[in-house]
Design a protein around this nucleic acid. Sequence first.
DNA 1: GACATTTGACCGTC
DNA 2: GACGGTCAAATGTC
Length: 286
Amino acid sequence: MDSACSFANGSPRSEVMEPEVKHKDVFKKRKTTPKWTEQVKVCLGTSLDDGYSWRKYGQKDILGAKFPRGYYRCTYRNVQGCLATKQVQKSDEDPMICEITYKGRHTCTQASHLNKAVVAPTSKTNMGLGENKHHNHQKNQPQEEKIEPQETIFSFGSSGLEVKTEDLDHKKDIFPSFCFSSPSIGSEKEDNNMFSYAMIENNNLMESFLIAPTTSEEPNIFCLSPCHWGSSTGLGQSMHASESDITDIVSAPTSVTNSPIMDLDFILAKIDFDTDFPINAPELCS
DNA sequence: GACATTTGACCGTC
DNA sequence: GACGGTCAAATGTC
């Protein structure tokens, strides 16, 4: 069905228990609920959106962490019984980096909508281009991640963005990185630039992507680098080791704090890469 | 008034 | 007992 299914059903070490298990059994469930971690570099105050509607239900100071960890669950938890949750915590080393840990999968209608998503430039009415915090159809959306579940994955706020793939041969077994250029970066207001962060799943393989400038000489070219984990040993099993790898991956291309990307908005979205790597620019590019 | 966020308390695990 | 995760009342926003 949708791509998220394989998380709940296919995680190698996750014996998915009944999601309705609560209270007394909740901690047993925690051990087996599939989870995965992403690290996303975002600018403080900008939106971080994975396409789902989340509701914050808690925040805790974590030992050894400078920043508190925020706990989110699906807005439709009560309505549709969606048990997806996520934890968002800023990196100690770089507050621009948020580590997002997802638990469970979305069973709400958002999932089906988002799995239709394709890569495409976003329209100015999609993510708001600076007004994304205010135009959502829901009230009081969390500042960090709210979008309407449209069929958009890579939402580059600037119109006319150029998306291209590269290095497909080398990374075809994982996922191709691809770059895109933004003629507006550095020349337009930062609020008008919006990039997305994609997480791809394929046969228990979670992929995250980090968007960063490819070179300092090409400040308008951004590289979408695949950060993958769980490809060989399984998602859950490789989590610990892979997290450090991810940190390395993240820190290298994104440690350019002076990069023009630093104030860009990010969104998170799910996509279905079952077939080709769809790069479409439908009517959303306005 | 409805809904989201905040925050202290509670509970299970380690 | 410390810690992380969740609950739920209080509070805020629209």
